[in-house]
């Protein structure tokens, strides 16, 4: 199992408390390098909270999140400031409700994702203000990278349109492309297939598989669409009420009794049994 031998992210004893509410309780799992890992569970199970902890939007109450780069160096995500998670640790994310810069063009959206490298190239604005060639080269490279991604997500013709004008499915793809423009080693997708029709969701599968194949980026995704989850993921982690109830390959999880109970409820005989107990 790759997620045990060569994990890119190890979540250990993660706990997130909001006042009296424990949203995530003692959660441990690993994300294998080059795997597509799905984090699933019923509504309110704490999936997005886990994402927010990994990507620095929440500071975990307890636990450790260690990210291993290919060169063997390890970073503790819970100790990094929020903006360093993308820049230093190379973890990118998308959002459940799409968060594009709607008033900026598609191309501008992708260039904002290259903020830190371009900022360095522009000598923190000083060289850029003077118009030195180093910055212009860096910007040209960033535009080339953006063009590559726009071709990949079939939006090259709409590069100069405002992102808010794109149809919903295209906005989802653009958000993934924007996250990929930060050159991440771990891409966290929060319900990428939500609101997509079957054809779009099939295209999304293709896109995710090619990201994994061509860029060696590991993917961690939250998803309710089981055709996506079972179709492309190598590893599935199931959450319910903030705790892990199953962890394994898609086949193992599909046949797991506690997962079936969490998703579909319990069997009819047991319901009768319980009803008899309470006197119905």
């Amino acid at each position: 199992m790759r997620w045990q031998d060569d994990p890119v992210l190890e979540v250990e004893h993660l706990k997130m408390r909001f006042g009296g509410l424990v949203a995530v309780n003692d959660l441990s799992f690993s994300v294998g390098r080059g795997d597509i890992t799905a984090l699933i569970g019923p509504n309110g199970a704490g999936k997005t909270t886990v994402f927010n902890c990994i990507t620095g939007f929440y500071r975990p109450s307890e636990g450790m999140l260690s990210l291993r780069h290919g060169d063997g160096s390890t970073l503790l995500l819970e100790r990094l400031p929020g903006h360093s998670i993308s820049w230093k640790a190379k973890v990118a994310r998308t959002f459940q409700n799409i968060r594009l810069f709607t008033g900026m063009t598609v191309l501008e959206n992708l260039l904002v994702a290259r903020h830190n490298p371009l900022m360095l190239a522009s000598g923190f604005t000083v060289f850029g203000l003077l118009g030195l060639p180093g910055f212009r080269d860096a910007e040209r490279q960033a535009v080339e990278q953006a063009k590559f991604w726009l071709e990949k997500i079939n939006l090259i013709d709409r590069a100069d349109d405002p992102a808010g004008d794109l149809p919903y499915g295209a906005q989802r793809r653009l958000e993934i492309a924007r996250a990929m423009c930060t050159d991440p080693i771990l891409l966290c997708l929060d319900e990428p297939a939500a609101g997509l029709n079957p054809r779009e969701s099939h295209e999304l599968n293709e896109l995710l598989l090619s990201i994994r194949q061509d860029h060696g980026t590991s993917i961690l995704l939250i998803e309710h669409d089981m055709s996506v989850v079972m179709g492309i993921s190598d590893h599935v982690v199931v959450l319910d009420y903030g705790t892990k109830i199953a962890d394994g390959t898609p086949e193992e999880v599909r046949n797991d009794q506690s997962v079936i109970a969490a998703y579909l409820g319990v069997e009819d005989e047991e319901v009768e049994h319980v009803e008899a107990e309470v006197g119905l």
């Binding site: 990507t55 620095g56 939007f57 929020g82 903006h83 360093s84 998670i85 993308s86 820049w87 990118a92 994310r93 959002f95 968060r99 594009l100 810069f101 709607t102 008033g103 900026m104 501008e108 260039l111 904002v112 994702a113 290259r114 903020h115 830190n116 371009l118 900022m119 522009s122 923190f124 604005t125 850029g128 203000l129 910055f135 924007r178 996250a179 930060t182």
Partner: peptide, 28 residues
């Protein structure tokens, strides 16, 4: 000039969506 530099784009991105900016590694 600043609008065409990364800092200017970051300003405008900040106006559009601060949370997305953070997720892209911009020090808000």
């Amino acid at each position: 000039r600043l609008r065409r530099l990364p800092v200017g784009r970051a300003w405008e991105a900040l106006r559009e969506d601060e949370i997305a900016c953070r997720s892209l590694g911009i020090n808000t």
